[in-house]
């Protein structure tokens, strides 16, 4: 019976004395104001920084500059300590719930309003967001 098997499995894990999986309270983004730490690669180089916002066509990150990486340029993206579902590979363009999932762990899930964008750019002495080719 599946129920019995399930309980047995839970009990077996119990004896092993471990926690499997992620606790919500331990997610990095739950304990600090910033977005998740992102590492991404394009065909020519790698970038890392804070995930600021997620748009329909790409992500905005804060590294040495404020940069926009279109999904079409990304060959690999991971969010640190967020689990396997927060990864993108070549050609991945998240939509619907998956897109919302990425947004929810960014600094600004609501997107960059003009005010937010101007403050962030001023901090980096930029006049516009750099686009990763």
């Amino acid at each position: 019976m599946r129920t019995t098997k399930m309980l047995a499995t839970v009990a077996a894990f119990a004896v092993a004395g471990c926690h499997l999986g992620t606790s919500g309270a331990n997610l990095p983004v739950a304990n600090q104001p910033g977005g998740a730490h992102v590492s991404l690669r394009t065909s020519t180089r790698a970038y890392s920084g804070e995930l600021l916002a997620v748009q329909d066509d790409g992500v905005i990150i804060s590294s040495d500059r404020i940069m926009f990486a279109p999904f079409s340029a990304i060959v690999g993206l991971t969010l640190e300590k967020m689990g396997g579902q927060y990864q993108l590979r070549t050609g991945d363009v998240p939509r619907g719930e998956r897109l919302a999932q990425f947004r929810a762990v960014s600094r600004f899930p609501q997107g960059l309003t003009p005010n937010i964008q101007s403050v962030l750019l001023a901090q980096k002495s930029q006049t516009e967001i750099a686009v990763i080719p």
């Binding site: 399930m6 992620t22 919500g24 309270a25 719930e97 999932q101 929810a104 762990v105």
Partner: peptide, 28 residues
């Protein structure tokens, strides 16, 4: 967003909302 934890006794194969968006935003 609310961040919480559940015991997965049901053998769920897809955790579709690993971070729960409580009221995530019109901008989405």
């Amino acid at each position: 967003e609310a961040f919480d934890t559940e015991v997965n006794t049901a053998g769920t194969v897809i955790m579709s909302l690993s971070v729960g968006a409580l009221a995530t935003v019109a901008a989405a």
